[in-house]
């Protein structure tokens, strides 16, 4: 599904990603953990095509296709989805209208007609029920006045609507209380399938109790310094990151 080879990225001449290698197959869930400032969010945004970052060496392949020349929207059309750590507010644009626009733009890119209204409605109903979202919520302005938890739940709702091939969840657990965390995780688990892949970025092992990863990677100082199975997350929870930092320094 996704193959990242020796990826380097910098912003304002400061290198943040220093040679990332990562392979994610369809049907897999990968967790990326690491201390603050290690480059986790940068990695997510570089995959999504945020051009604030300068990609030096390396490549990102989605189903074998190099994404380098593609705009963020083209990557989205190909099935890349980023659940933002800090979703932005768009006043006056309802969640429903935003989703309708997003879905129809992607369909347009694939040469399809707009999704018929009844189909759209059915989909919205289905997905909002799955994520226990009140219908009133959908007519509110996108993220405006949303609580931290509502924003994250809304991100996962969008993921459910867009049905991406590759979803990157950037600290989706931050700002969620335990009930919201369970609902959101359940949602994500229902969206897991053999045809898609999910990358979960998190600080804490807590989320991984709900969304159980196949692989765990530790990102430190712009590089993946350790990879393992879900047990690695437990080890990190117990020992912190310091032992890895020491290991990486050697």
């Amino acid at each position: 599904m996704l193959e990242i080879k020796n990826l380097h990225a910098s912003v304002d001449d400061k290198e943040i990603l220093k040679g990332i290698n990562l392979k994610v197959n369809a049907g897999e869930v990968h967790a990326i953990m690491g201390p603050n400032g290690s480059g986790k969010s940068t990695l997510a945004e570089v995959i999504a095509g945020q051009e604030e970052f300068e990609v030096g060496e390396g490549s990102i392949l989605l189903e074998g296709e190099d994404l380098e020349e593609l705009s963020p929207e083209e990557r989205a059309h190909k099935g890349v989805f980023l659940s933002f750590q800090y979703p932005v507010e768009i006043p006056g644009v309802s969640v429903t209208n935003f989703m309708k626009t997003a879905i129809n733009e992607s369909r347009k890119a694939q040469g399809l007609e707009d999704m018929p209204a009844n189909e759209m409605l059915k989909k919205i109903r289905e997905k909002s029920e799955m994520l226990e979202i009140d219908r009133k919520f959908l007519s509110r302005s996108l993220n405006e006045g949303f609580s931290g938890g509502e924003k994250k739940r809304n991100e996962i709702f969008q993921m459910a609507m867009m049905e991406p091939k590759l979803a990157i969840l950037d600290e989706t657990d931050s700002g969620l209380d335990i009930d919201a965390l369970r609902i959101v995780s359940n949602g994500v688990n229902k969206l897991r399938s053999k045809d898609n892949a999910i990358i979960v970025i998190t600080h804490y092992q807590r989320l991984l109790e709900y969304i159980v990863p196949d692989f765990v990677h530790v990102l430190y100082n712009g590089k993946i310094v350790k990879s393992g199975t879900k047990e690695l997350a437990l080890e990190l929870e117990e020992k912190g990151y310091d032992w890895l930092k020491e290991e990486a320094a050697v």
């Binding site: 989805f81 932005v88 768009i90 626009t101 879905i103 992607s106 867009m162």
Partner: peptide
Amino acid sequence: GEDQIFYCNQRGIDTEKAIALIVNGFSKE
């Protein structure tokens, strides 16, 4: 904001459409 544009772009909405969406939202009342 560039962050608003990028957010829309990431959802498959190009910049032109994103500006229209944001401006229309702003003017909605």
